[in-house]
């Protein structure tokens, strides 16, 4: 029997950036679950609470689509519990490896993002907790405002390196 398989994060080896104006870092590849079918946020929140995932963040990801994200890796068992906690007509697709989370923050974060996204990032138009699916340049991203000057971008794993390097180049 070969060795225990080891996890290799998509952005392993990409340097974090932390300047006075911009901070950029890859977030832990914990869990990212795509929930489909539920119309209400509360339904998703109830299901993740039932599965003991109170710390996870629920984000809008399109019509009747949600992302449940968190830093903790989930076992197959937990996923099955969560799946069975979902009401009929609501489905779960594990995307913990398919999507990668990147954190971008700092006083210049909004300016940097506006070079790539057409989303209005003014505090009033895109307050804390708001999410949008948009493009950053050529790449599709799911964008969430986490704080006044802090954002999280979710990108397809295959494009994570390209996005990270592009953000890094813009920020440098």
């Amino acid at each position: 029997m070969p060795d225990l398989p080891t996890l290799r994060p998509a952005l392993a080896g990409e340097p974090a950036l932390d300047s006075t104006t911009i901070a950029l870092q890859a977030l832990p590849e914990g869990h990212l679950l795509q929930i489909m079918g539920a119309t209400e946020r509360a339904v998703v929140e109830a299901a993740i609470a039932a599965a003991g995932l109170e710390g996870s963040d629920v984000r809008e990801a399109g019509y009747r689509q949600w992302y449940v994200v968190g830093d903790k890796q989930l076992s197959s068992k937990t996923l099955r519990e969560l799946t069975s906690a979902l009401p009929a007509g609501t489905f779960l697709s594990d995307q913990s490896h398919g999507r990668v989370r990147i954190r971008l923050s700092g006083p210049h974060a909004t300016k940097l993002l506006s070079t790539g996204t057409a989303v209005d990032l003014h505090d009033a138009a895109f307050p804390e907790g708001r999410s949008a699916i948009t493009l950053f340049g050529h790449l599709s991203v799911h964008l969430t405002r986490k704080s006044a000057a802090g954002f999280e971008l979710i990108v397809l794993r295959s494009f994570a390196e390209a996005l990270y390097e592009e953000l890094h180049a813009h920020a440098a």
């Binding site: 795509q34 489909m36 079918g37 009747r64 689509q65 489905f91 697709s93 594990d94 995307q95 913990s96 490896h97 398919g98 999507r99 397809l156 794993r157 295959s158």
Partner: peptide
Amino acid sequence: HFASSTDQ
């Protein structure tokens, strides 16, 4: 419902 899992 559909979910792209190409990258997963």
